[in-house]
């Protein structure tokens, strides 16, 4: 083989290898993910951005993320994407819209940032539901664990609900941490002030749990005010509770939910036949926020927020 022939062969091989690489790349770029946002607000964009970053950090495949708002023509968008591998609906409105498309969707359909209350209301009696939903709520045991860490001596755990449904689960979770549950049922039309007063009279600590009737934002405001007057700490389910005067809150940032959704898409890709992914899951990652002024005035010593997260994770792993 002379030198000229060698050069020709080398070029051919180089072009061939480049061709293979390009073809691999082209194949990878065909994975399309459609993200449907309920509204044009920062929280929804945070979910999308985090999802996009997490998917593109891995090397095996390249993902193209397309986003659309729930009020736009989702049907047409799905049809225009030939290599669609997943749809992610962010928020209740987007989930509702995507779910209405029903049979048209033949790719995995994920729903994120959904309150459990909405999930139960929308999908309790139907098979037509998202393949997997990542809730925005925290498991109630996580809030109870935090209550125990912050108040080691408290005994009476108070909650305000609009119906009895959750009561038993909360009582069981509370008992595991040595709490006796005191629940107040506040139905629509009833005077919330009387209910809150009743709750505070019989509680050492109050858990603010999501409830569209018992704990509207106004009721939450007055719960926090009256609880503070009575020196009763309140643990909330969103950071807003801490900002408005609660002692502490456990919550998951939209970024963490976006990341969890991305990991879910990747795990779906690798899913073996006998593997089962739960249809509804709580956020895996979470943050803890503490109102230091409230803690100080209630004479509660609080360790760093990061330590609290670690303590909570340890508590959860012990249970598992």
């Amino acid at each position: 083989m002379n030198y000229q022939t060698f050069l020709v062969l080398a070029r051919v091989c180089t072009i061939f290898l480049l061709g293979i690489l390009i073809s691999i790349k082209v194949n990878a770029a065909s994975e399309q993910v459609l993200v449907v946002l309920s509204h044009d607000a920062p929280a929804y964009h945070s979910v999308k951005n985090s999802l996009s970053q997490t998917l593109n950090l891995q090397q095996a495949k390249d993902f193209q993320i397309h986003s659309i708002f729930a009020y736009e023509d989702i049907d047409a968008q799905i049809k225009s994407l030939s290599d669609l591998c997943a749809i992610v609906s962010v928020g209740v409105n987007a989930t509702n819209r995507v779910n209405q498309l029903g049979q048209i969707i033949d790719v995995p359909n994920f729903s994120v940032l959904i309150p459990k209350d909405a999930y139960d209301s929308l999908f309790q009696n139907t098979y037509n539901k998202p393949d997997v939903t990542i809730l925005i709520d925290q498991p109630v045991s996580r809030l109870i664990d935090l209550a125990r860490i912050l108040l080691p001596d408290a005994q009476r755990l108070g909650v305000m609900l609009s119906q009895d449904g959750q009561k038993q689960n909360i009582a069981i979770a509370g008992r595991k941490q040595g709490f006796v549950l005191y629940d107040v049922i506040a139905r629509k039309g009833e005077n919330p002030a009387i209910k809150i007063k009743d709750l505070l009279d019989r509680s050492d600590i109050v858990l603010a749990l999501p409830d569209s009737v018992a704990l509207t934002r106004q009721n939450a405001k007055w719960l926090l005010y009256m609880a503070y007057q009575n020196n009763i700490p309140v643990i909330g389910f969103s950071k807003a509770y801490v900002d408005a005067g609660g002692l502490a809150a456990v919550y998951t940032a939209p970024e963490a939910i976006g990341k969890q959704a991305a990991e879910l898409i990747l795990s779906f890709e690798k899913l073996a036949g006998d593997q089962v992914i739960p249809r509804m899951m709580y956020p895996r990652e979470f943050s803890v926020s503490v109102n230091q002024w409230v803690a100080k005035s209630l004479n509660i010593n609080v360790t760093e927020n990061a330590n609290l997260v670690e303590e909570l994770k340890r508590a959860e792993s012990r249970v598992q």
Partner: peptide, 27 residues
């Protein structure tokens, strides 16, 4: 401040609550 649905939405988790304890009320 009035919820529009019979169930919670993500807004209930993400929206601020009117502040109950202003600095002067932190006893």
């Amino acid at each position: 401040n009035t919820p529009c649905f019979a169930y919670l939405t993500e807004a209930d988790f993400l929206s601020p609550i009117p502040n109950a304890l202003s600095a002067t009320r932190i006893y």
